[in-house]
Amino acid sequence: MKGLVVCLIAALLRLMAGDGTCADMKTSHFRVVSTAKTPSPEAIASDLEPTWRTFEELFGVDPPAVEVVISVTAGGGSSADAGTESAAGGASHRIAWTIAEGEPLDGQRFSDLSHEIAHIYFLEYMHEGGLHQPNAWLHEAVACHHEKEPSRRNRAQWIRDRLGERIPLATLFTMRNPVKESPMVELTVQLHEKLARGEISVDELNRQVSAYASSHADELSRHGIQNMTYYAESVSLFEFLLETEGKAFIREMCRALARGTSMDAIVRQRKAYPNGPSELEEAWAKWVRTHA
Rank of each mutant, 00 (worst) to 15 (best):
L4G: 07
T38E: 14
G20H: 06
S86R: 14
V69R: 04
G102V: 01
T98Q: 09
I225D: 11
G3E: 11
C144H: 10
M126D: 02
E243H: 13
P168C: 04
P63Y: 00
V61Y: 07
R162K: 15
G198M: 04
T84V: 15
L257Q: 03
D19P: 11
T35L: 03
A10W: 05
E282W: 14
M253V: 12
Y121F: 14
I95Y: 06
K194M: 15
G198N: 07
R268H: 08
S221Y: 08
P183T: 02
E233D: 08
A23C: 05
A285S: 03
R207Q: 10
I159H: 00
W158L: 11
W284A: 00
R222F: 01
G107V: 12
G18Q: 07
K194E: 06
G20N: 09
A256D: 13
E56S: 04
R255E: 12
R160C: 14
E85G: 13
V209N: 01
Q208H: 08
L163Q: 01
T51P: 01
L113P: 03
R268G: 11
A265T: 09
L257W: 14
L191R: 10
E186L: 03
I250N: 00
V33N: 10
L12V: 10
A265M: 12
A217R: 04
L205E: 05
S79F: 10
G224N: 00
T261C: 14
I44P: 02
K194N: 02
L205K: 10
R197Y: 10
A43D: 07
F238L: 02
N154H: 13
L241M: 15
T21A: 11
A256P: 14
T244K: 05
E124Q: 03
R162L: 07
Q108W: 12
V72E: 05
Q108N: 15
W52A: 00
L195C: 11
A143D: 02
E181G: 05
A80Q: 12
R255W: 05
H192T: 07
R152F: 15
S234V: 01
F59E: 00
H119V: 02
G75T: 12
A10V: 13
T73L: 04
F59N: 11
P63Q: 03
E245T: 08
E49N: 14
A211H: 10
E103L: 01
A292H: 15
V235F: 03
K37E: 13
T244M: 12
Y230S: 09
K180R: 09
